[in-house]
Write a protein that binds this DNA or RNA. Structure first.
Lengths: 216, 216
DNA sequence: CCACTCAGTAAACAGCTGTTCGCTGATTTT
DNA sequence: AAAATCAGCGAACAGCTGTTTACTGAGTGG
């Protein structure tokens, strides 16, 4: 789509991506707040000073990770939104999409869940902005649904917030379920994950029922 | 209620509490994962080595903080549970209780929200256990409610989970609302907090509606 | 072809970290 | 009154941290 960037810029972006990937890996067992610059460069195999060619901070790197992580989530959300059919089918599909997303990008999901309320203010803010954007998008889609006739914009926004929050919580819960029995008991992990999905479906059904009787 | 402990043990517990308080203060702007042992002792005005007389780790200190923070929350939850009256009154009271709790223990709420998905495994586990305990308690109370006739134990547990999760999320949102416009604009902070509370009430009303029509 | 740009290097800086050691002196126990 | 306990101290340890510096050498554009 664009100017094939020179081999120099290509190499630079490759290193940048390597830094992001290494950081994401290191963040599996710690918070961004304690991620060291040297730690990241060491994992990539690059001099500490090279870090400054790409980011000014580990917080800066964190913000870049937010873009990456929520960029992929955005596609999943759009896919869930455009789903048609009865409410049960839509719920099943939404939960399946979330589960698939967690399976495809576990580190991204962990990062968002961990840093959403984390100790690094710019990262928290970036996540907040994006999630609010998602909620606006969902609210707009809900407004287009004939089932939402008579709903105020504020109520639609409130409902959308419930859906987005529930999605993030569910994604994190799926992750925990997989990590809890990891190692020798893969079957137990599968069962725990299925239990999380079943609960998530029931919770969505509860919300959908409330939605249906909102205007009484 | 107990043996008046000697002046030695009293002094020890005083130092221990000072360490906990100092840590809680330092955790306003960072995650437990990056909290240093020396940092805490320096804030208290005590030698680094003294730390080991009370905790073996900062993770260990974190677990102690979980007990403290969720101990106070537990009382608030019990107060919310025993509330009687129509559903709207119960919702208003529950939201008011949460708001009061956040005002009384902001650092505790921040700690729990931050470390619930944080980078320190033992602390995450401790929070998970306690929140699950709270949910069980809520589920039991819901089961005693005549409005829950015909509900399965699993469904009651699912509903309780929604309530507990929503409470934690709301508490954290109240905190953010207060911090967002802090400093020169106290009026704006009040308005932002009231908006959060209004949304929380509507969300609870939505869930209550779903609950009422669950058995259709 | 040649001047220039600039991603990544190696070294050095002061300052921080967790942990261990033997010690002190007030409190407790015998 | 003598003996034992033990919370807190101060010093030392190796190893880590972020940041700056002058540098190299491959890639670029006129």
């Amino acid at each position: 789509m664009s100017h094939t960037l020179g081999i120099r810029q290509a190499q630079k972006q490759k290193t940048r991506q390597a830094l992001l990937d290494a950081a994401l890996g290191l963040l599996e067992h710690q918070s961004l707040s304690s991620l060291g610059l040297r730690e990241v460069t060491r994992a990539v195999g690059v001099a500490p000073a090279a870090f400054y060619r790409h980011f000014k901070d580990t917080a800066d790197l964190g913000v870049a990770l937010v873009e990456e992580a929520l960029g992929s989530l955005h596609e999943t959300i759009r896919a869930a939104i455009v789903t048609t059919g009865g409410s049960d089918e839509r719920i099943d599909r939404a939960v399946d999409l979330i589960a698939a997303h967690v399976r495809a990008h576990p580190a991204h999901v962990r990062f968002i869940a961990r840093e959403r309320h984390g100790g690094v203010a710019p990262v928290r803010a970036a996540i907040g902005v994006q999630l609010r954007r998602f909620a606006d998008e969902v609210a707009e889609a809900l407004g287009a649904d004939p089932e939402s006739g008579g709903w105020s914009a504020a109520d639609l926004r409130m409902l959308a917030g419930v859906y987005v929050d529930h999605m993030v919580m569910t994604a994190s819960a799926i992750l925990e379920a997989g990590a809890g029995a990891d190692g020798d008991e893969e079957a137990a992990a599968r069962r725990a994950e299925e239990a999380v999905l079943a609960t998530a479906r029931r919770q969505l059904r509860l919300v959908t029922l409330g939605r249906r009787h909102w205007l009484d």
